[in-house]
Design a protein around this nucleic acid. Structure first.
Lengths: 360, 360
DNA sequence: TGAGGTAATGCAATCGTTTACATGAAAAGA
DNA sequence: TCTTTTCATGTAAACGATTGCATTACCTCA
C-alpha cells in the first residue's frame, strides 16, 4: 500500500542505500541525485517506516518518560518542558503514568520500555533498589528528577534549602509554633522529597532553639483535600501552630480553605507558606517557595540530548534554585494566642535569636 | 548482546515460530513446550524487540495522542484518563504537544506519526480541512475530543447546552447585562468550542429578549492572566455587566482576581460563572459548569479499543452531560447600578420573561 | 487397515530499513 | 601518463520478529 524505500529507489533510479542516505542528509550524495530522490519521495508521498528504521539502526528516536501523576500540575508542567526540547530535536515522547501501584508493579515486572526507547526520564518516582537496578540494566541514559539513582543524570531543586528558607521566613516573622503539612510521608513507596524537606524543617527549628513537637507534622498527600484535613488537624491541637508550611501549594490551598471555613484568616490567625508557586498561588495571594517547573523538564531533556549525542560523557547533576515569594498569607506572629486557648500559655515572643538569612 | 528469539528457540529446542506462538499465548502449542519456552525466555531474561515485532506484524501497540497543551489542567486530566485505559490494555501512549504554532505546522508537514501508531486520539485541536484530511489518510482509527472530523469517533460535551445553562442561570437570577469571557476566538487557528459557546450565549440572550452588545464579549485565551484582563476590560465599559460567564474556570479565576484587586466582590458586585469545575473551583467557591474530564479521556481510549478490536465497525459519537454547580460567586442581580455609572440608566429589572429551565 | 482429521511444530519468506564493504569513475598528484 | 585519492553509488547482509504453508505424528472412525 504505502510506498517503501524500494519504490522510491526505483523511481529515482538509484539504490535503496542511496535513497536512505539522501533522505537522511548524509554526505557522499551528489546534489543532483539527492534532489531526484527527494522528488521521487515527494511524488510517492513516501513515509519512512520508523520500525524498520529502528530495527536496522538500533535507534528508536523515542524517549520514555516515567512519572507518578500526569494530571498533577507539577508533572504536567515538567512534561511540557520535556516535550518542547525533545520535539525540537525530533525525538518522540512515550509517556508512562505509574501512579497506580498495580500499574507500577506491572511496569517493573514487564519492563515494557526495554528496547523501546533510546533514553529514559524518571520524574520523582519512589523506587526500590531493585527497581533502580532494573532501569539501569536497560542500558540507556537516564535522567532523574528529584530522586537519585547512581550513574544517572540528575536535575533537582535544593529541597533542604527551599524548606529552610520557608521556615526561616516564618521564624523571622516571630513565629515559634510552626506546623508542617508534609507530603506522602506515610506512603509505603517512599518518595524522597518529603523526607528531605521534613528533615530540613526539623533542623531549622532546632537551630532556632524551638523544641520539636511531632504533633505539628501533619501528613497531607500532596492533595487539596488532604491538605485541608491536615490543616484541620493542626488547628484542633491544644496548642495550635501560628504558622504552617505546606510542602506543596495544592496542600496550602486546602489549608487556606480550612481556615476560611473555620472563620479564620491568613495571615491574621495563621500564616501559611506553600511550595511550588503553582499558577493559582498568585491568585490566592499565597506566600510560597517558587521553583522553575517547566524549566526542570527542559533541563532533563537537554541532559538526555547530551547523553545521546555523546557530547558529555559523564552524567551531570544540576540543582536549580528556589526562591521565596512573599505574598499575603504570611505575616508577623501575633503576641496573643489564636482563638482556641485551652492550656499552656505560650512563653513570650523572643524572636529571631538564631535565624538570620531569609531569602535571596 | 540482548537475547533474541533465536537464542530462546535454541535453548528451548524448538523453532522461532513456536517461541513466538508460545510467548504470545497463541493456541496450538502444547503445554509442555510452552513451559519450556517460557523457562528459556526467563533464563535468558529475553525481551521481545517491539520494533521487529511491529515490522513483521504491522501492529505498533501504540496510540498517538495529539493535543494543544499538556500543561493545562484540562488536557492533563484527559491524558490521565486515556492513559489509564490504554495502559490496562498494554497499549503505549505517544504524546504530541502541538501548542506552539511552529510545532503544529511541522507536525503536519512531516506527519511523524504516520506508520508509527495503531490509532490516534486528537484533543480539541483546531484543524484545517487539509489537516483533517492528512490525519484521516493515515488510515488508522481516530477518536476526537471536541472538534468533529468526518468518519472519526467522537466524544464531547454539549457545549451549547452547558453554555445555555450557565447563561440561563444568570438570567434567572435577574441579570440582564451579562458579559462573556470567550476563549481563543481571535486565534487564527480556530478552536471550535469557543464558537459554539459564543453562539449559544447569543442565542439564549436573544431568546430572553436581551439586546446583543458586542462589547460584552471579551476575549481571554483560556489563561488566568488573559481572563483577568478581559474582566478588566468588561468592567471599564460605560455600562459594565452585572454578571460574567467565563468559558473556562481558569479565566474565571483571573476574572475573580481582577474583581478583588478593584475592590469588588462576587457575587455582590458581579456574578461569575466558570466552565469545567477545575480542581480549584471549589476552593474559590466558583459557580461553574462541570464536565467529567478524565472520564472523557477514558471514553476516547475505549472507542479506540473498540475500533482496534473491530468490536464495533461504525465510529460512534458520545456526548457526555455537563452539570451546573451553583456555588458562591453567583447571586441575584442588584437593582442598582454597579459603581461606575456614566450614562444610559438601565431599564428596570424585568426578569425571566423567556428563560425557563436553569439546570438539571 | 486405511482414509481423513486435528494438533503441534518447523520452514522460510517477509516486513522496510541501515550500513559495512565493494566498485568504478573522476580528480589529483607525481 | 600512471598511480593515488576521493567521491558517488551499488550490493547484500544484517536487524528480530511474524505468519502462511507445509509436515509430521497421532487419533478416530468406518
Amino acid at each position: 500500500m504505502a510506498a517503501s524505500i524500494i519504490d522510491v529507489a526505483r523511481r529515482a533510479e538509484v539504490s535503496t542505500a542511496t535513497v536512505s542516505r539522501a533522505l537522511r542528509g548524509l554526505p557522499n550524495v551528489s546534489e543532483a541525485t539527492r534532489e531526484r530522490v527527494l522528488r521521487a519521495a515527494e511524488e510517492l508521498s513516501y513515509a519512512i517506516s520508523p520500525h524498520a528504521s529502528s530495527l536496522a539502526s538500533g535507534r528508536t528516536g523515542t524517549v520514555g518518560v516515567v512519572l507518578p501523576f500526569v494530571n498533577r500540575w507539577f508533572y504536567s508542567q515538567v512534561v511540557a518542558g520535556i516535550d518542547s526540547v525533545l520535539r525540537a530535536n525530533d525525538l518522540d515522547l512515550l509517556l508512562y503514568n505509574l501512579g497506580d501501584e498495580r500499574v507500577h508493579e506491572r511496569f517493573f515486572a514487564r519492563m515494557p520500555l526495554r528496547r523501546r526507547v533510546d533514553a529514559l526520564i524518571v520524574l520523582n518516582l519512589p523506587l526500590s533498589a531493585a527497581e533502580c537496578e532494573a532501569l539501569v540494566s536497560m542500558e540507556v541514559p537516564i535522567a532523574v528528577l528529584g530522586t537519585r539513582i547512581p550513574g544517572c543524570w540528575h536535575v533537582s531543586i535544593d529541597n533542604a534549602e527551599g524548606t529552610s528558607t520557608a521556615i526561616r521566613h516564618l521564624i523571622n516573622l516571630g513565629h515559634r509554633r510552626i506546623g508542617m503539612i508534609t507530603g506522602a510521608l506515610g506512603d509505603p513507596r517512599g518518595f524522597t522529597t518529603p523526607i528531605v524537606r521534613q528533615h530540613a524543617y526539623r533542623t531549622v527549628l532546632a537551630q532556632a532553639g524551638i523544641p520539636y513537637d511531632p504533633d505539628l507534622e501533619a501528613p497531607g498527600h500532596f492533595g487539596i483535600e488532604e491538605g485541608a484535613s491536615a490543616m484541620a488537624r493542626l488547628l484542633s491541637l491544644p496548642d495550635p501552630p501560628t504558622a504552617v508550611f505546606a510542602e506543596s501549594d495544592q496542600m496550602a490551598f486546602g489549608a487556606l480553605r480550612t481556615l476560611n471555613r473555620m472563620g479564620l484568616r491568613a495571615p491574621d490567625d495563621v500564616s501559611v507558606v506553600g511550595f511550588d508557586d503553582h499558577e493559582t498561588a498568585e491568585l490566592l495571594d499565597l506566600t510560597t517557595i517558587a521553583q522553575p517547573v517547566a524549566h526542570q523538564g527542559e533541563l532533563l531533556a537537554r541532559q538526555i540530548l547530551d547523553a545521546l549525542s555523546g557530547a558529555s560523557e559523564e552524567p551531570t547533576r544540576v540543582v536549580v534554585p528556589t526562591r521565596l515569594i512573599v505574598r499575603g498569607t504570611t505575616g508577623a506572629a501575633r503576641a496573643a494566642r489564636p482563638r482556641k486557648d485551652h492550656s499552656s500559655p505560650r512563653p513570650g515572643p523572643e524572636p529571631d535569636q538564631h535565624s538570620r538569612t531569609s531569602a535571596r
